[in-house]
Amino acid sequence: MFGLDLLAKLFKILRSEDSPNKIAFGFVMGMIIGLTPLWTIHNLILIVLIVILRVNIGASLFGYIIFGMLAYVLDPVFHSFGYYLLVDVAVLHGFWARLYQIPVVALSHYNNTVVIGSLVSSIILFIPVFFAMKYFVVWYRRVVDPKLQKLRIVQIFKATKFYRMYEKIKIIGG
């Protein structure tokens, strides 16, 4: 049911009235929260931004769930990448040491291998994922969705008892 729910959520986001920019922006913000450990200062800032800015909250949630699962799998990679950045790259040592002394920044837990490894990875992914998502939303709305709605199987599926039951369960389950 979780996979189906996720798929339904995605379709709902894609078919919402929000602009592709808002959806993509919400999605990449959710991606950063999902990829990096939750209780960090940058995530707190991101959550605040998601709440106060007019980005698609559903897309953020979707990005968080998808990349949160991915983060669990990629954890050893982030640890190694973070260790490389913090320890192996000697040129950066001075930078990290100075950063460590800056108030509030020190509280951000950036000196943790997984935090820095996943944060830098998500920053690298930010722009490509943003444009990819934006392009995907536009393409979906222009090409896929009209075709999908016309598909007989979709219409039949929507008319089935199972779909109606699923809709009911979804409403009951919140």
Partner: peptide
């Protein structure tokens, strides 16, 4: 352990 990482200390 997973998602915990390792804290690196920077001497200044």
């Amino acid at each position: 352990p997973r998602l915990k990482g390792q804290d690196i200390y920077f001497y200044n």
